[in-house]
Amino acid sequence: MSAIVEILVNEKLVDEQRIEQAMGLAIAAASRARRLSPPNPWVGAVVLSASGEVVGSGSTQAPGGSHAEVAALLEAGELARDGVLVVTLEPCNHQGRTPACTEQIIAAGISRVVVAIEDPDPLVAGSGIERLRSAGLQVSLGTRAAEVRDQLAPYLRQRVTGRAFCVVKTAMSLDARSVARDGTSQWITGPEARADAHNVRADSQAVIIGAGTALADSPSLNARDATPPATRQPARVLLDARGRVPATGPLFDQSIAATVVFTTDSADPGAIKAWREAGAVVEFVETQGSGVHLEQVLQVLSEKYGVLQAMVEGGAAMHAAFIEASLVDRLVAYVAPTFLGRDGRLAFDLDGPSTVMDASKWRITNTMLVGSDIRITLDPIVVAEELS
């Protein structure tokens, strides 16, 4: 290899290494916007100067604030000219609450844009990349794409399906029981696992429970022990098809967080009136079996309330209903090192398949020791494949 060729190869290698490293910084920046940006996606961006130095970084601000690309460009200033913009999600090409990011990228004099993944939102869907290329910018796609798809899974799934990304969370014993023989369930897992579950709440824009859980536990459903603290409390969502739950207790305390009740036309009118007088918003959906139509619930949360991720914290029957309806996008199970025995209640009250061959398939995406418990994260195979 000649000296000139070797120098060119090494420069190319250094250049791509810098791009990879910059995308890593952008991914880290995006993670800091996770609880701030919804209903917008949490995006990170980094600007490299013409000489390859990091001169700006940014992440999506609260709705109405700067997008990640603009925040990074503002920090870089004139050093962005002839530089490289590295961003986790395709820049927008439309006027919304803020001007189109593509136009601001072009105006900043950027020469190259490195994008991890395309934005499936119909308002974007490749148009951002097309606009940048038509303006003469070099655009590449796919750097660290798998990491970004995992980071943005709730947003991507919501944009594709039109419903909120559904995370079912459960805590259980080694023999898959969530309630002991005497009806007690507090606490199966330790304080570290419970604090971690509050982080999942803080990452969600809605927490869903059913009438049974509301009556048994009278929960607050707010994110209390999250690290960092929750920027905004998730909406508390009650599913009560018949009007069984009285409008009392922490669940209806609007100073804690907003409450939305999903019910049906068959609900007790007195209960509906009481819910509304307590400050809750009441939404009507169709009946499904003996309860509310679960897919409609997730669709309304997405379309009307801008919910990207909804966390389900009901009991065994509700968890089973979401699983059997193929609506679960992620399952988070905290498993405690204990046994509750055959008389304990199962964590999932499923009918189950007739044969092993018909069993649903899940992929374990993460395992983590949390205190004395294990957190297992699983995605249904179909969702895992669509996001890969």
Rank of each mutant, 00 (worst) to 15 (best):
Gly190Cys: 01
Asn10Phe: 13
Arg201Tyr: 12
Glu192Asp: 11
Ser111Gln: 14
Gly64Cys: 01
Glu16Trp: 15
Leu141Ile: 09
Gly212Ser: 14
Ile376Lys: 03
Gly344Met: 12
Glu130Ser: 15
Leu48Asn: 10
Ile188Glu: 05
Ala176Cys: 09
Leu36Val: 12
Thr377Cys: 14
Leu8Val: 12
Ala135Pro: 06
His293Thr: 00
Arg194Thr: 00
Glu103Phe: 02
Gln151Trp: 13
Arg163Lys: 12
Ser372Asp: 07
Ile27Glu: 03
Ser127Cys: 03
Gly314Ser: 04
Asn366Thr: 07
Phe284Lys: 08
Glu103Ser: 12
Val70Lys: 14
Leu174Gly: 08
Thr248Tyr: 05
Glu103Ile: 04
Asp15Leu: 08
Gly314Leu: 02
Gln61Lys: 10
Arg342Leu: 12
Pro99Cys: 10
Pro380Met: 05
Glu118Pro: 00
Ala226Met: 13
Ser140Cys: 09
His198Ser: 01
Ala80Arg: 10
Val54Gly: 09
Ser111Phe: 15
Ser57Glu: 12
His198Gly: 04
Ala71Thr: 10
Val260Pro: 00
Ala135Gln: 03
Ile4Ala: 15
Leu79Gln: 11
Gly183Trp: 09
Glu75Gln: 11
Leu25Trp: 04
Leu327Ala: 02
Gly243Gln: 01
Gly371Phe: 10
Arg363Leu: 12
Ala30Ser: 06
Glu118Met: 10
Val328Thr: 14
Gly44Ser: 09
Met23Pro: 12
Glu385Arg: 13
Gln186Ser: 13
Gly344Arg: 09
Ala71Arg: 10
Tyr155Val: 03
Thr367Lys: 14
Ala202Val: 01
Phe252His: 00
Glu78Asn: 10
Val9Lys: 13
Arg159Asn: 07
Gly162Tyr: 00
Ser140Tyr: 11
Val260Gly: 00
Leu331Lys: 14
Ala384Leu: 03
Ala135Lys: 01
Thr259Trp: 02
Ala202Ile: 02
Leu221Ser: 08
Arg232Val: 07
Val312Gln: 08
Gly44Glu: 11
Ala68Trp: 06
Thr184Val: 10
Leu308Cys: 01
Leu48Met: 07
Ser178Thr: 14
Glu313Lys: 13
Gln233Cys: 00
Asp121Gln: 04
Asp329Arg: 02
Asp196Trp: 08
Asn222Trp: 12
Arg177Gln: 10
Ala317His: 10
Leu346Glu: 15
Ile256Arg: 09
Glu75Pro: 03
Asn366Glu: 15
Gly352His: 14
Ala226Tyr: 02
Val113Glu: 01
Leu308Asn: 05
Gln17Thr: 13
Glu386Met: 08
Ala347Trp: 05
Glu324Met: 06
Val261Leu: 04
Ala333His: 02
Gly352Ser: 13
Leu308Pro: 00
Trp42Asn: 06
Val86Arg: 04
Tyr334Gln: 11
His293Pro: 06
Asn222Leu: 11
Asn366Met: 05
Asn366Lys: 15
Gln299Glu: 15
Leu25Glu: 07
Val356Pro: 14
Pro191Val: 07
Glu385Trp: 11
Ala336Cys: 00
Pro91Phe: 02
